[in-house]
Amino acid sequence: MNVIRFEEVSKQFAVRGKGTASAPYAVRGLSFAIERGELVAVVGKTGCGKSTMFNLLIGLSAPSDGMVAVLGRDPFAEFAHLAGKVGVVFQGDRLLPWRSALANVEYGLELLKARRADRVQVARQWLLKLGLEAHMDKYPHALSGGMRQRVSIARAFATDPEILLCDEPFSALDEINAALLRNELRRLVKESGKTGMLVTHSIREAMDVGDRILVLRAPGHVTAEFRVADTLAAVGEAGLKRQILDAMGQEASLQDADALGPAAAAGRVDSAA
């Protein structure tokens, strides 16, 4: 069953005084589907429409054309119906600075009207699971970047959503923490049997986390799709990276190109992790 479905989706942002008629496309003719239990990485260069696609997916933005369906519902028009069903980990931790780590994890449960005792218990369990038991009462400013991102992951998982959506959640972290957290994220999603999507500009990250990789190219359309295990078996790691880079376009960024190196930083990080 398709848990997430994009059908010929386009998005143009209105230009003041001119409307959308002549506006450039942020996303154009985007189509893909994600099955229940899949963990899909969407990779693409900066400006290829990843964030627009993400906002369409979580219902913060409406498509100009085409159809978006999450669990069979329109995430924009039926915004409230998806409460508690979709968990989001954003780029940057986006923790509420006036709440402790525990209260931040409780946040989603509080909005879902869970009983205080229950939500405290669940939040504590998640912080424990993510190794933050000693930091529950600390405010975000007293936590490191990695800890804060762990809290935000705990916050997304605490509501027990069916779908977990992650928008470049590790881009602000150092490579060691990023590698540790993406392994942890994959483990948590797989253990809980949730459906997940990770949006990233890092090929390394997409390969580490995704069962399947969708390559996005401007203006926001899928140019290639890879089943990670099958492709790795067929062409090896370097081959998969090359194919992803090709699908991303010729002018791959330096950071993406770095991922091509045989013992690239990512490889060393993985062993360190």
Binding site: A83, F90, R94, Y107, T159
Partner: peptide, 10 residues
């Protein structure tokens, strides 16, 4: 950013 985060919980 915080507004979008809060909205994600609908």
């Amino acid at each position: 950013d915080l507004v979008e985060m809060a909205l994600s919980f609908r």
